[in-house]
Amino acid sequence: MTCENCSVLREFVFLAYPSCSELRFLSFFGISLIYVFIVAGNVLIVVSVWIESCLHVPMYYFLGSLSWIELCYTAAVVPHILANTLQTERTITLLGCATQMIFFIGLGSADCLLLAAMALDRYIAICHPLQYPLITTFTFCVRLVVASVVIGLFLSLQLVAFIFSLPFCQARGIEHFFCDVPPVMRLVCTSSHLHEQSVLVAATLAIAVPFLLIAASYTCILAAVLNMHSSAGRYRAFCTCSSHLTVVVLQYGCCAFMYLRPVSNYHPKQDQFISLVYTLGTPLLNPLIYTLRNTDMKGALGRVLTRKCPSLSS
């Protein structure tokens, strides 16, 4: 496409939503139900980590922070998806689209970075257990969480500023449910190899680099576990890391498929399904993955759910 087809756009239109009213209401009900479970599960984890003293350790502090980020991450797009599902005109202004993309990409990047911080925590706990209390102080954990959010939002801001500085074509329809990088980049008139490389660099910094850190951490963890003489110790180490590894595979698998490839390889229908997996599926499964194999977390959740409100018990 050339800039002869460019125009000054004021809004985009989402084209991925069903036109049939029955499908719209069915989609609204299904997404609403999933979103309720996402909010309930992650809020329970945040509250449990906050009020249960037995969970006041770095591993659970990172888990609570991850749940909090995923609450904000889904809130950036899911309420807008629900509103659009019931509307006939599904438009969004350029400013609204850019804002949504900043928070969605930024918090998603923070999610990936925080998973790398959690891998670092597991590496120190297993490979350097004697130094673990000295290294992973509360201040150290806070700095890692804050750094994950700040770096994620900074990378997202740079990427979105670059995308929206490019000229868009007259075709203003986004083949997606929300403002994401690949479908919006397809509307840019001056598509070039340089633009695609810029997007790939940002995706590499947010996805590939943290994944390499996780891979390096777990390589060292695996070597340490194999050298353990106690089978019980190896089992505990495996149980501690298996939940995190499952989440890493889900998160990084979907993100790598969406962002670590040229924009020209974008396939609307296929990528719409993948986007729903990492937007709704991963935040829904994470609380289940982290609690099903963790007796401390299951016990804390049980105590939180059965705790009586002081005003009612008096």
Rank of each mutant, 00 (worst) to 15 (best):
V201Q: 07
A206I: 13
L280Q: 12
P262N: 00
H229R: 15
G253V: 00
A206L: 12
V249E: 03
L284I: 10
R234V: 06
G233C: 07
T282Y: 05
L285F: 09
C220E: 15
I274Y: 00
P283S: 11
L280V: 09
A203N: 07
L222I: 14
V209F: 15
V247S: 09
Q272M: 10
V209D: 00
L285W: 04
L200I: 09
Q251M: 00
L245Y: 02
M228F: 12
L226K: 14
S264P: 01
L285C: 14
G233D: 06
Y259D: 02
T282G: 08
P268M: 03
M228D: 02
A203F: 14
S264W: 07
T279W: 03
V225R: 15
L276M: 06
F273T: 07
S275K: 13
A208E: 00
L284W: 13
G281L: 07
A202Y: 12
Q270S: 13
L226Q: 14
R236E: 04
Q270G: 11
R234F: 01
Y259H: 03
L222W: 12
I274K: 12
Q272C: 14
A215G: 05
Y252S: 10
I214N: 11
I214A: 09
A215P: 05
P283H: 12
A202D: 08
N227E: 03
I214R: 09
L276N: 06
C255E: 02
Y252I: 08
A224D: 11
A206Q: 14
V247L: 02
S243L: 05
A232W: 13
C254Y: 01
Q272V: 09
R234D: 05
N286C: 13
R234G: 12
R236L: 08
L226R: 15
T246Q: 11
G233E: 07
A203W: 12
Q251P: 03
K269Y: 04
A215M: 12
C255H: 04
F257Y: 01
T240F: 07
D271H: 07
P262W: 00
G233W: 14
P262V: 02
P268I: 01
S264D: 04
P262T: 03
R236N: 14
L212I: 09
I221N: 08
T219G: 02
L250I: 01
Q251K: 02
L285I: 06
L245S: 02
L200T: 10
V201S: 07
L285V: 08
F273E: 00
Y266V: 04
V201I: 15
H267E: 04
V201R: 05
L280W: 09
I274T: 08
V199P: 08
A203I: 12
C255G: 00
C254K: 00
C254Q: 00
A203S: 14
